[in-house]
């Protein structure tokens, strides 16, 4: 292929590496060396993930977590320019400021939809393993260039701004990746099978409503634990949906599938384990309470879960 996902990991790694250099020399940060080291190691794992043997990557991640555990990760200076400078360039650029930001989704969609099957000289243009990700990466690289031209900024400014944002997010930037890792370990250790056994033990198999209720709540709860409805579905479906709902009560599998996934998503809205959706945004939006987004989502999630239970019961 011509554009591979690995390329964009390299771009991410280079961005992270440059940012860590700024953190190392940031005298206003009382923990600049350990903080810099945290981002430096992380950038290396992104950059050389394919080259470094997994055992050493594992040790590097543990080292990063150790830095965080010892309070070695601190936020440095927030070097935004003065209000006046911002206002000056804002009034110069006006609505053009939206252009690079809007470019990201538009280019991603165009590239992902139109170029997905394009071949050049017998090679696929986009990495077939994850064309959307490659499209997003390409769109961002183009948008970075557009933003630099538009604002007449140097790559140095772009890196300094990235550092500001990365430090705003802080440790949360690694959390989604680490949670996905936890999911893999959980699966290998057989956590799912144990949970199914527990559920099958307590479920009253003769009552349709009870089965539907336990299934939907189980999807939500299990998703909350794993942080991911995709991980919950196979386990809950194998344990309850297929033997009880579909085989015993003769429910329509299409309906069961659609509704159960949504029951899982209700769980996603309520768990810090879905860090990408619930925790990273609180860091991005400077919210004091890391659970603020979850708090806002809980009422909608519970009502929707109740709706899903009723819908599945009446359809089945």
């Amino acid at each position: 292929m011509i554009f591979s996902v690995e390329w964009f990991y390299v771009v991410m790694g280079v961005i992270g590496l440059c940012c860590s250099l700024y953190t190392f020399i940031d005298k206003t940060n009382s923990r600049r060396l350990t903080s810099g080291l945290f981002y430096f190691i992380y950038a290396l794992t992104l950059l050389f993930g394919k080259v470094i043997p997994p055992f050493y990557i594992g040790l590097m991640v543990i080292a990063m977590v150790f830095i965080v555990a010892c309070g070695g990760l601190k936020k440095g200076r927030d070097d935004v320019p003065s209000e006046k400078t911002i206002e000056k360039s804002r009034s110069r650029l006006g609505n053009w400021l939206f252009f690079p930001a809007v470019l990201i989704p538009i280019l991603t969609v165009i590239v992902a939809k139109l170029l997905v099957n394009v071949k050049l000289g017998g090679k696929a243009l986009l990495d077939p393993s994850n064309p959307t990700l490659v499209a997003l990466g390409l769109a961002c690289v183009i948008a970075i260039i557009a933003a630099m031209c538009l604002t007449r900024s140097t790559p140095k400014t772009a890196v300094r701004e990235s550092r500001r944002l990365i430090e705003t997010i802080g440790w949360a930037i690694v959390l989604p990746q680490l949670l996905a890792t936890l999911g893999v370990i959980f699966t290998q250790a057989g956590v799912g099978t144990v949970i199914t056994q527990v559920i099958n033990h307590i479920i009253p198999a003769h009552s349709l409503f009870a089965v539907v209720f336990v299934f939907c709540i189980g999807m939500a709860l299990f998703t909350m634990i794993m942080g991911n409805a995709f991980a919950a579905f196979p386990i809950m479906a194998a344990g309850i949906a297929i033997p009880l709902l579909i085989r015993q009560f003769d429910a329509n599998p299409n309906q069961i599938a659609a509704i159960s996934m949504f029951a899982g998503y209700c769980g996603t809205l309520m768990t810090p384990m879905a860090a990408n959706f619930n925790i990273v945004p609180t860091a991005l939006l400077n919210l004091k309470d890391p659970n603020h987004v979850i708090r806002v989502q809980i009422p909608t999630a519970l009502l929707t879960l109740a709706f899903n239970i009723c819908l599945m019961y009446f359809l089945a």
Binding site: G49, I144, A158
Partner: peptide, 20 residues
């Protein structure tokens, strides 16, 4: 690693924020 793709959006957003 794909989970951390947001890093690649940061330069754009940072630059635009810096300019208002």
């Amino acid at each position: 690693r794909y989970m951390s793709i947001l890093i690649i959006t940061l330069p754009v957003i940072g630059l635009l924020e810096r300019n208002g």
